[in-house]
């Protein structure tokens, strides 16, 4: 594993160099390089229009990727997120038709998300069931409840104020207003993960549940709140989705769970838990968004683009493994070279 760094290597390299060579830095560099390349090669790429479309497209994945990062770092997974978003969307449609105010609808939607997350949390933390299996179950359950709620109908007559607010931009920058909210959530999750004892506990939890228990992490409670977090943020993404497309349907956001997991893993979060950063995940989400948008401008068909997502994901996990193997072999040879003169 890459976590076993020999002490001499650590001492030999200054901290800033380590930071520059970290996986996050590489991700950010690739992202910047991609943006520069795209701007240089695609005439229509560098424009406020691009910024607007690109960001609005990535917001659902970006939002859900935040709590998902924490969940995966803690050694669990939540596959029910897209169904939670779909259920929220269906609920919004029905509530709007029954004449509720937009505020009530949003609040009830968030509560629905909270309950979905809490059920996941109870099953995983309370009963100690594997989250992979549980959330495959709730993936079906929540999507099913969405169908029960709204059936085959689609509600599309949401108020223009709400739908245009969601797609509105900040002045001439092209940056969607909602991005401010998304950014706040990203920051909140970054602070929680990287600057609080709770966040440090998550890494411990992902590394070893037993060890985490011994150092005083309240394992069950922590996991419960993580799932509540994914539930609420997924509901938020569902609300955004509904208003952005001005359509409440039972199949909204379906299949999004795997896109989110792919982005999180591309961002360097270990599927085994214990490793990952918010910065890496945000770069990965933006990277996928940029590549897709750029290729789409070049009229590469949307459906073929998913090859890019898949290839990025595989290269991102297999690449470091190969590099690691080469590095270990090289280090071994160097060590042997240094040992042999002294022994002779």
């Amino acid at each position: 594993m890459s976590t076993i760094v020999s002490p001499e290597k650590k001492a030999a390299r200054p901290r800033w160099q380590n930071a520059l060579l970290s996986r996050d830095a590489v991700m950010v560099a690739i992202l910047i390089a991609t943006i520069i390349t795209a701007s240089a090669m695609l005439p229509r790429f560098a424009s406020p229009l691009t910024v607007g479309f690109l960001l609005i497209d990535v917001i659902p994945v970006l939002l859900i990727a935040m709590p998902m990062t924490l969940v995966i770092i803690a050694g669990e997974i939540d596959l029910s997120v897209a169904s939670t978003a779909g259920l929220t969307s269906a609920l919004m449609g029905v509530l709007w038709q029954s004449g509720q105010s937009m505020v009530t609808i949003v609040v009830l939607g968030l509560i629905a998300g909270l309950l979905c997350g809490a059920l996941n949390g109870l099953l995983v933390a309370g009963l100690g069931l594997p989250s992979l299996a549980v959330t495959i179950g709730t993936l079906a359950l929540y999507r099913g409840l969405a169908l029960v709620t709204i059936g085959d109908d689609a509600v599309a007559d949401f108020p223009v104020e709400a739908t245009s607010f969601v797609t509105s931009k900040i002045g001439a920058t092209g940056i969607p207003v909602v991005m401010i909210g998304a950014l706040l959530i990203v920051l909140a999750y970054a602070v929680v993960l990287h600057m609080t004892p709770f966040g440090r506990g998550l890494f411990a939890l992902g590394f070893s549940t037993e060890a985490a228990k011994f150092v005083g992490v309240k394992v069950d409670r922590t996991k419960f709140w993580l799932f509540v977090g994914t539930g609420v943020v997924s509901a938020l993404a569902g609300i955004f989705w509904t208003l952005r497309y001005s359509s409440a349907r039972s199949d909204n956001a379906s299949g999004l769970e795997l896109a989110v997991v792919a982005a999180v893993l591309l961002g360097g979060v270990s599927i085994f838990g214990g490793r990952g950063t918010i910065l890496g995940v945000v770069s990965a989400v933006l990277l996928i968004g940029t590549v897709n948008y750029g290729l789409r401008l070049e009229r590469v068909s949307d459906v073929v683009l998913i090859i890019v997502t898949g290839a990025l994901l595989i290269i991102s996990v297999v690449g470091p493994r190969i590099a690691e193997g080469v590095a270990t072999r090289w280090r071994g040879r160097r060590l042997r070279a240094r040992v042999s003169p002294t022994s002779s």
Partner: peptide, 17 residues
């Protein structure tokens, strides 16, 4: 889980292409 999530997309993309 990671590898086959990747190939899920790649194989589907090939199918689409």
């Amino acid at each position: 889980l990671v590898i086959t999530l990747g190939t899920l997309y790649i194989f589907r993309g090939l199918n689409n292409a």
